[in-house]
Simulated assay, not measured.
Amino acid sequence: MSSSSFPPTRAVGRGPAWYRGDCHVHSVHSDGELTPEEVALQARGARLDFIATTEHNSAAPPGAWGHLAADDFLIVLGEEVTTATGHWLALGIDPGEVVDWNHQAGDGLVDQRLDQVHRGGGLCVAAHPHAPYPSGDFMFPFRGFDVVEVWNGLWTSDRPWNADNEAALAEWGRSLAADIRTGSWRPAMGNSDTHVEGQIGIPHTVVFAEELSTDAILAGIRAGRSWIAESADVDVSLGAHAHGRVAGVGEELATHGGQVEVQVAVRGVPVGTVSFHTDRGKVHRVPLPGEGADAVQWATTAEDSAFVRVEVRHPDGHVAALTNPIILT
């Protein structure tokens, strides 16, 4: 089997940069309606820099995706491991590799499957934890998984948000306080779960990576150097400042007991709100200042806030973007 029939693991890219990607995508090679060519074309149209192929319980076929990669477009190999008690994504697996799906919550076998992916440098994502169909509810413990897909676009209509995503976000948000204190927090990500035309990139994850490669993208996701956008029209910048030091999403800021200035700038959502969330829950909420206006600011301390993350919502309450936390120490 020639490796040239599979996409390369590195693209030219833009060097260290923020890259937009959708890591939950199906084609006609499982239960999707789009060919790989159509998926790639629509991903490029959605202004994505990378996608991951995640067919149900099967490897990407040789020759299906390799010719669609480009200097500015990375294709990551993956699988949606579809079990009777929840689905999860294995990202960054080897060409032809299949992760066995014959396991379920309580039988003790999932750890072996997670280890298989981790040994190869891959990433394990708990997918759509509250999906509204049999086997969609995620019944495995999050322990051992690297990331939680809190925003899944498959079962949405006019906008990529619904009650199932709201429940997944709330569950993840509640876990952050305890997990951050133990150094074992899991970043959030968002994906479209594309099956039909017009879904791809709604939503997607924006990742800071050292280069446009499988290893670098997965490292950025694993570290939480990422945020989630409903489309490429939306851009969010979150930073925390203390005593001349600056930290961004997924990073740690040593405050030495001083005040922390948190600043967030949003583009592409002219009307709505920004809310600030810490280990005390939602602590501050302000209207968006509008296009071209100054950034929204908020002040706190590490004593009051073990971390800070933000959510950007439309007037109807639907999420437009959300970030992983900045850790304050």
Rank of each mutant, 00 (worst) to 15 (best):
S3K: 01
S3H: 11
S5G: 14
V12K: 15
V12A: 15
P16L: 11
A17V: 04
W18Y: 14
G21N: 03
H24A: 06
V25R: 00
V25Y: 08
H26M: 10
V28T: 15
D31G: 10
T35V: 06
A40E: 03
A40T: 05
Q42R: 14
R44I: 07
A46L: 11
D49Q: 13
H56A: 03
P62C: 03
G66F: 07
A69F: 13
A69S: 12
D72A: 05
V76Q: 12
A84N: 06
A84W: 00
T85Q: 06
A90S: 07
G92L: 02
I93H: 10
I93A: 10
D94R: 15
V98S: 08
W101I: 00
N102L: 08
Q104N: 14
A105V: 05
L109Y: 03
L109Q: 07
L114N: 00
D115E: 15
D115C: 08
R119K: 15
R119A: 14
H128R: 10
H130L: 09
P132Q: 14
P132K: 05
Y133F: 11
Y133R: 07
Y133E: 01
D137T: 08
D137G: 06
F138M: 06
F142M: 09
R143A: 12
R143S: 09
F145A: 01
D146L: 03
D146H: 04
V150N: 01
N152L: 08
T156D: 13
R159Q: 09
N162I: 05
N162A: 06
N162V: 11
L169W: 12
L176M: 11
D179H: 06
R181P: 01
G183I: 05
S184Y: 04
S184I: 09
W185Q: 03
R186K: 15
R186H: 12
N191D: 15
S192K: 03
D193E: 12
T194K: 13
H195F: 14
I202A: 13
H204S: 11
T205M: 12
L212C: 12
A216C: 13
I217M: 15
R222A: 14
R225M: 01
S226F: 13
I228N: 08
I228G: 03
S231Y: 02
A232C: 08
V234H: 12
D235Y: 06
G239F: 07
A242E: 04
H243C: 06
H243W: 02
G244W: 10
G244Y: 12
R245P: 00
V246A: 00
V246F: 07
G248F: 02
G250E: 03
E251R: 04
T255S: 01
H256A: 13
G257L: 02
G257Y: 04
V260K: 08
V260F: 10
V260N: 00
A265Y: 09
G268V: 10
G272Y: 09
R280D: 14
G281H: 05
K282G: 06
V283A: 01
H284I: 01
R285C: 14
P287M: 05
P289Y: 08
G290D: 00
G290E: 03
G292W: 10
A293H: 04
A293W: 03
A295D: 07
V296H: 08
W298E: 00
A302L: 02
V308R: 02
V308S: 03
R309K: 13
V310I: 15
V310M: 01
V310L: 00
H314W: 15
D316T: 09
D316S: 10
H318Q: 15
L322V: 08
N324S: 05
L328D: 01
